[in-house]
Every structure is written in structure tokens, then in C-alpha cells.
């Protein structure tokens, strides 16, 4: 099934290569520019959430504090996995630019799997914290922690679904427009989500409260 998709897609791509995309004043693609702006806006979103957490992380009167619940080795492992997924995303983008659909699909799938693994790790972590007595409404620390990391988790989830959908669209040859660019856009988003996690991991987990 993938093989036929590869052939069909190659033809499709050739057509667009001739086409050469649209003229823009700056030569930048509209889509990419929009994605950058969106990510710029997302920076402020996470900025707000991180600020909230930083303000509230010490506020857990008579309840569990951050350093009492963290499991740094585990979170380090899952952070590393998310980082690796950025690498596989890069490979996917490179393959897409080579118009190698098969390899693109492989790396997109691996990225999606690693992303799912990360979210699974987060679900595991949340469950453990909850069992240890840290509910969502237990303290300001817990509310702001779950909100911040939960928001990030939702972003990863959306990213994984996007990745899987792109794989599906490539297989079915249903991408309107420049395939490599679509993969690249999803890649931009994915890298952004990764970078935000590095920030969260450093500020939330590594710097002692």
C-alpha cells in the first residue's frame, strides 16, 4: 500500500516542483511565516504558565512540596526520549525534502511513537504523584504544576496526532500542496514543544524550589 503511495506521491510532487509555489514579497513561504508567528505567540502562553508556576511553587503549606515528589532519574529519561524525538523529526524533514516518502513515514512514525512514550511517562508520573497525595487541588504548587505540565502534555498529544495524521495523509496521498513543507511545519511545532520541555524540565524539576 505504501509503495503505491510512494509512486503516486512522487508524481504529485513533481507537479508541484514545476509549479514552484507562490511568489511572496520576502521569498518566505506564507505557511512557514504563520507557523513562526504562532510559535512566537505560544512562547508567551508558556511564559505565562511558567511564571505562574514559579510564583506558586513554594506555596504548599502543610502539604507536599516539589522536592518531595520529584523522581528526577525517571523524568530525565523521559526528557531524553523527547529530545531524541526531535532528532528523528529532523530526519523526517530531511527525508521529506528528498521526497523519500518511505523514510519520511518511518521517521514520522518513530517520532510519534517516542512522543506517545513521553506522554505515557507523564501519565505514569501524574498517577504516582496523585497516589502519593498530590491532587490537582491539593495546593497552589500542585495546581500550577499540573496545569503547566498538563498544557505541555496536551501540546505533545496534539503533535503526535498531527504526526500520525501526516503519515496517514502521505500514505493516502492526500496532502494538498507541498508535502515537504507540511512535514517541516509539523517539525517546527514539534521542535518548539521540545524546547519548551527543556525549559520546563530545567526550571521545574532541576532548580530546587
Amino acid at each position: 500500500m505504501a509503495d503505491t503511495a510512494v509512486h503516486a506521491a512522487a508524481g504529485h510532487d513533481d507537479h508541484h516542483a514545476d509549479h514552484g509555489g507562490h511568489y511572496t514579497s520576502t521569498g518566505l513561504s506564507n505557511n512557514k511565516l504563520a507557523m513562526w508567528l504562532f510559535l512566537g505567540s505560544e512562547c508567551l502562553l508558556f511564559g505565562g504558565l511558567i511564571s505562574t508556576y514559579m510564583l506558586y511553587r513554594g506555596r504548599h503549606t502543610a502539604n507536599l512540596g516539589p522536592d518531595q515528589v520529584w523522581d528526577i532519574p525517571f523524568t530525565s529519561a523521559s526528557s531524553f526520549v523527547l529530545l531524541m524525538s526531535s532528532l528523528t523529526m529532523v530526519l523526517a524533514v530531511t527525508a521529506a525534502k528528498r521526497r523519500d516518502d518511505r523514510t519520511t513515514n518511518v521517521w514520522l512514525s518513530v517520532t510519534a511513537l517516542l512522543g506517545s512514550l513521553f506522554v505515557a511517562g507523564q501519565v505514569y508520573e501524574f498517577t504516582v504523584f496523585y497516589r502519593e497525595g498530590l491532587g490537582y487541588t491539593t495546593s497552589l504548587f500542585s495546581s500550577s504544576f499540573y496545569t503547566l505540565t498538563g498544557f505541555h502534555g496536551v501540546h505533545v498529544t496534539v503533535g503526535v496526532i498531527m504526526l500520525l495524521a501526516v503519515v496517514g495523509m502521505i500514505i493516502r496521498n492526500r496532502i494538498p500542496g507541498d508535502k515537504a513543507e507540511v512535514v517541516e511545519l509539523v517539525g517546527l511545532y514539534w521542535h518548539f514543544v521540545d524546547i519548551v520541555w527543556i525549559l520546563i524540565f530545567t526550571l521545574v524539576y532541576l532548580i530546587p524550589a
Binding site: A112, L117, A120, V123, Y124, L163, L164, A165, G168
Partner: peptide, 16 residues
């Protein structure tokens, strides 16, 4: 999207 979401949910739930 639904297939993606289901696949994702299965992995996340089972693995956790």
C-alpha cells in the same frame, strides 16, 4: 485524526 488518537491513547494507556 480518530485513528491517530486511538493509536495514541492505546499506547499511552497501556504503557503507563
Amino acid at each position: 485524526p480518530v485513528a491517530g488518537a486511538i493509536l495514541f491513547a492505546i499506547i499511552v494507556y497501556a504503557f503507563s
